[in-house]
């Protein structure tokens, strides 16, 4: 007799814990052919609220880590992902309806991207910061700092590489993230959250909500304790993107605008995914005896 497998419950990831949605709701996740795969927790606005609280709580601790330490932790995420490759490959294949080989290459790229960003942790300040030769007896320098809590609407198509490509730059720069996963393809994000939970990432630094960016986006965009928002997940929906940008203006969030269509995430990201979420702080001090 065939063994009945033990299924996983796909939950939210908030503050380092895996709760169900506060609303009690879940939704059916199908594979690319429309076959039922699992029920995912359907995050509500109150889950957004809780995730922002958890993120804020984690923010100063994460920003206070040394850049070296953050780099180590990002690299650790890559290591643990590597360890769970088969699971990621299967999840990506199933979600995106691509071949096993294509899924493998997506997972490769996602892990490699984390490694790439891990290395940036202790270099970005050197590349985009500077000493300023002011015309007076003052030491003056400018260095990037995290902007704080970043709302991330993860891409809808690229369930893992896209997700990693928007989350890694946020956290490597010392920010904390409240992420809304792809609605139709949430399962790689849930598995990714399990990786985060076992990769020395402090609870609350990344919070992942499975649910609908159309529903949750406005709550994140309008939240007055969110400092920035990445609208990648509403690419192509200009009307929604505009309304989110308008809402984001309520507390002048830094906005990474939604592209017209979802980009090819295998392209070189450049620095802008990181620089969009840092603040340049300039410090002056007199030079004297």
């Amino acid at each position: 007799m065939a063994r009945i497998d033990v299924r996983k419950t796909y939950k939210l990831y908030i503050g380092g814990a895996f709760p169900r949605s506060e609303s009690g709701h879940s939704y059916e996740v199908a594979d690319s052919k429309g076959r039922f795969v699992a029920n995912a927790a359907l995050a509500s606005r109150k889950d957004v609220r809780d995730a922002v609280v958890a993120a804020r709580k984690a923010a100063s601790g994460w920003a206070g880590r040394t850049a070296y330490n953050r780099g180590q932790i990002l690299y650790r995420i890559a290591e643990v992902m590597e360890d769970r490759r088969p699971q990621f490959e299967e999840a990506v294949r199933q979600s995106e309806g691509i071949t096993a080989a294509a899924a493998r290459s997506q997972v490769d790229a996602a892990i490699d991207r984390l490694v790439w960003y891990a290395g940036w942790a202790d270099k970005l300040a050197q590349v985009i910061g500077n000493a300023n030769p002011v015309a007076g007896p003052f030491f003056n320098h400018t260095a990037p700092e995290p902007t704080g809590v970043v709302g991330v609407l993860a891409p809808q198509s690229s369930s893992l590489l896209g997700l990693v490509s928007v989350v890694a730059p946020v956290i490597v720069t010392g920010n904390v993230a409240v992420v809304v996963s792809s609605y139709d393809r949430p399962l790689p994000a849930v598995t990714f959250s399990e990786v985060l939970a076992t990769s020395d990432v402090p609870g609350g630094v990344v919070n992942i909500l499975t649910g609908d960016a159309v529903v949750l986006g406005p709550w994140l965009a309008a939240h007055m304790d969110v400092n920035a928002i990445d609208l990648a997940g509403v690419a192509g929906d200009a009307e929604l993107a505009t309304s989110l940008e308008v809402a984001a203006a309520d507390n002048l969030k830094r906005v990474r605008r939604a592209p017209e269509t979802e980009p090819d995430w295998t392209n070189d990201p450049g620095l802008s995914p990181m620089t969009g979420f840092v603040e340049h702080k300039t410090v002056w001090h007199p030079i004297g005896i």
């Binding site: 030769p133 002011v134 015309a135 003052f138 003056n140 340049h280 702080k281 300039t282 410090v283 002056w284």
Partner: peptide
């Protein structure tokens, strides 16, 4: 949490010094 921190000085401005 401020874009410019003046330590033991205040209200100094210079073209080479980013402000915001």
């Amino acid at each position: 949490r401020a874009g410019v921190v003046w330590a033991n000085t205040f209200n100094k401005f210079d073209p080479t010094s980013p402000f915001g």
